[in-house]
Amino acid sequence: MSNDAQLLLLDKNAVEALLLPDQVLLAVREAFTLHSRREGRIFPVVREALSTGGTFGIKSGDVPSQALLGFKAAGFWPANRAVGAEPHQATILLFDPASGRPLCVVDGNAITTARTGAAGGIGLQLLARPDSRQACVFGTGVQARVQLEFALKLLPALQEVKYVSSSGKVNAAFEAYFSGRCKIALATDANAAVAASDIVITATPGAGPLFDLQAVRPGTHLNCVGTDTRGKRELPAGLLKQVRLVVDDVEQARRIGETQWLPETPCTEIGDLLTGKSVLQRHADDITVFDMTGLALQDLTVARLIQQQAMEQGMGSRIAWPW
């Protein structure tokens, strides 16, 4: 037992200062690889609706060989928007697996955003056609922004973007953010925008299908981000029957992802593509889908990266935590 033990606290400002896209990409690739090799474990997800109108969840896991153990408590509170606050809220806690002592509390919002964006980027690298030039993005929030950021970073041929906003109106801030990096404009017809695109990114609250089945043309790749709870969906009925499906975790995707709507769909885990356990030969006319439900291992590998950097640079707050 120790009376001089400390708990490291890393707030939003510290996390955002330490998050670098290239490092996040490496950490997320590591998470997928650990999962494929079953060197990292993910525990059953908690995802429940609250009487307040919010949704609360816990994702947890460990990597025994790395002494990495922790969880992320997170959820979605749409009413936060009315008071100018972020509806997504997340906090990550890392533990010493030998003693159970908490080591580090990390603001999880920026980590969730960055690791999900990086996961989408990896999906595009592995599944989208390299010559993809046009994308359609559903959503204009934080996640839509980071997904498009990684898409533009990793797909040099991508030049034109149409976006669909929840209001159906131009989002000037969203357009300004990507000004000079691509040709970006509001899509006035969602189906037409999907039909004209090589890549479709869905990053919405998952309230229902966003476009018609007939809009999806051969050769399209879809990154599906918003469906992470029972009952949510973004894709039209019937689409999964026509696609080559990739997921981050099979069981999790069947419970809370787009795959819940047709759980018998054959699928491949993205980590298995990275490790070579599975091979996906993409034909030009294939429609591919990456069903992204988010792995606890992504949160843990990125949080550990931030923790290590903070300790090296003397960042964060330390409070006494005797045990």
Rank of each mutant, 00 (worst) to 15 (best):
45 V>M: 11
95 F>R: 07
48 E>C: 12
172 A>F: 11
133 R>T: 12
79 A>N: 13
24 V>H: 09
180 G>Y: 06
127 L>K: 02
223 N>H: 05
185 A>R: 15
308 Q>N: 15
133 R>W: 06
117 G>D: 10
192 A>Q: 15
93 L>H: 05
284 A>W: 02
318 R>F: 08
124 L>M: 12
242 Q>I: 08
309 Q>K: 15
33 T>G: 10
306 I>D: 04
148 L>P: 02
226 G>T: 02
43 F>D: 14
105 V>A: 14
167 S>R: 09
310 A>G: 04
102 P>V: 12
57 G>W: 02
20 L>F: 10
104 C>W: 09
55 T>A: 10
303 A>D: 00
74 A>D: 00
235 L>A: 07
220 T>A: 12
162 K>N: 13
58 I>N: 09
282 R>S: 06
320 A>V: 04
279 V>Y: 04
291 D>M: 08
86 E>W: 00
298 Q>G: 04
224 C>F: 00
296 A>G: 10
150 F>P: 00
73 A>P: 08
14 A>W: 05
157 A>R: 15
254 R>D: 03
137 V>S: 05
5 A>K: 14
60 S>Y: 03
137 V>C: 06
44 P>I: 14
68 L>C: 01
276 G>I: 10
49 A>Q: 12
122 I>K: 06
313 Q>S: 10
185 A>E: 15
236 P>L: 04
175 E>A: 15
166 S>W: 12
84 G>N: 12
100 G>K: 14
98 A>F: 11
6 Q>M: 14
242 Q>E: 14
247 V>P: 05
210 L>Y: 00
282 R>A: 03
11 D>Y: 13
12 K>V: 10
163 Y>G: 04
119 A>H: 03
1 M>A: 14
160 E>L: 07
159 Q>F: 07
43 F>T: 13
103 L>K: 14
308 Q>W: 02
265 T>A: 09
232 K>Y: 04
54 G>Q: 04
54 G>M: 01
218 P>W: 08
221 H>W: 05
272 D>W: 10
163 Y>T: 03
185 A>I: 13
80 N>I: 03
93 L>Q: 08
190 A>D: 11
288 T>S: 08
122 I>A: 03
261 W>T: 08
304 R>P: 07
17 A>N: 11
180 G>V: 06
76 F>V: 13
229 T>V: 13
216 V>D: 05
59 K>P: 01
125 Q>K: 13
317 S>Y: 13
257 G>P: 05
231 G>M: 10
271 G>P: 03
60 S>K: 03
2 S>F: 11
86 E>D: 13
151 A>H: 08
74 A>T: 04
159 Q>M: 09
47 R>W: 02
239 L>Y: 05
119 A>D: 07
97 P>T: 00
124 L>V: 01
122 I>F: 02
60 S>N: 01
228 D>F: 10
104 C>H: 04
248 D>T: 10
270 I>C: 08
307 Q>C: 07
178 F>R: 11
66 Q>P: 00
198 D>K: 01
311 M>H: 00
83 V>S: 15
304 R>H: 14
274 L>V: 11
26 L>W: 04
221 H>M: 00
189 D>C: 04
178 F>P: 00
300 L>R: 04
12 K>Q: 15
313 Q>H: 12
